[in-house]
């Protein structure tokens, strides 16, 4: 099941050229671009691992693409990788854009668990199949 988190996730995967253009758009707006990765695809897993540091002083998308390629060398195929852009201006101080750039080949998807509680009530929860295996060995 294809993971749909962040922007563009219902579109086909972006090419490097398209990623570069999105990144340049973020930089031109003065946002700091981050590269993040994880192998826990649960939607509530908000904080992914940060690759390197947020790139506050990079002026051109080529610098970000350089780091993205470094990150791919280590994690491509085994982890999700996403690019996020942080707007530090007052009253925003939050992410303005985030999109997945790389995903594992096989995405097993999520299980829906029903928990029967308090008589006829049911609580629902989702669990990623990938999370059954230990961290680092999921994909």
């Amino acid at each position: 099941m294809r993971l749909t988190q962040g922007a563009f996730s219902f579109l086909p995967d972006l090419t490097d050229e398209q990623i570069g253009k999105q990144v340049q758009y973020c930089i031109d707006n003065g946002w700091a671009v981050n590269i993040e990765f994880t192998d826990d695809p649960h939607p509530r897993n908000t904080y992914w691992e940060l690759w390197g540091q947020p790139m506050f002083d990079v002026r051109d998308a080529a610098g970000v693409m350089f780091e993205l390629n470094e990150c791919r060398k280590t994690y491509k195929g085994r982890h999700y990788i996403r690019v996020s852009a942080f707007d530090s201006t007052h009253t925003w101080e939050s992410l303005r854009l985030s999109f997945i750039t790389d995903r594992p080949e096989e995405e097993p998807g999520f299980a829906l668990e029903r928990q029967e509680v308090d008589g006829r009530s049911i609580r629902y929860t989702t669990r990623a199949y990938a999370a059954n295996r230990p961290e680092g060995a999921r994909y």
């Binding site: 790139m55 990079v58 002026r59 051109d60 080529a62 610098g63 970000v64 350089f66 780091e67």
Partner: peptide
């Protein structure tokens, strides 16, 4: 430094 200089 190289990242900072890219595009310039």
């Amino acid at each position: 430094i190289l990242k900072k200089a890219m595009g310039g």
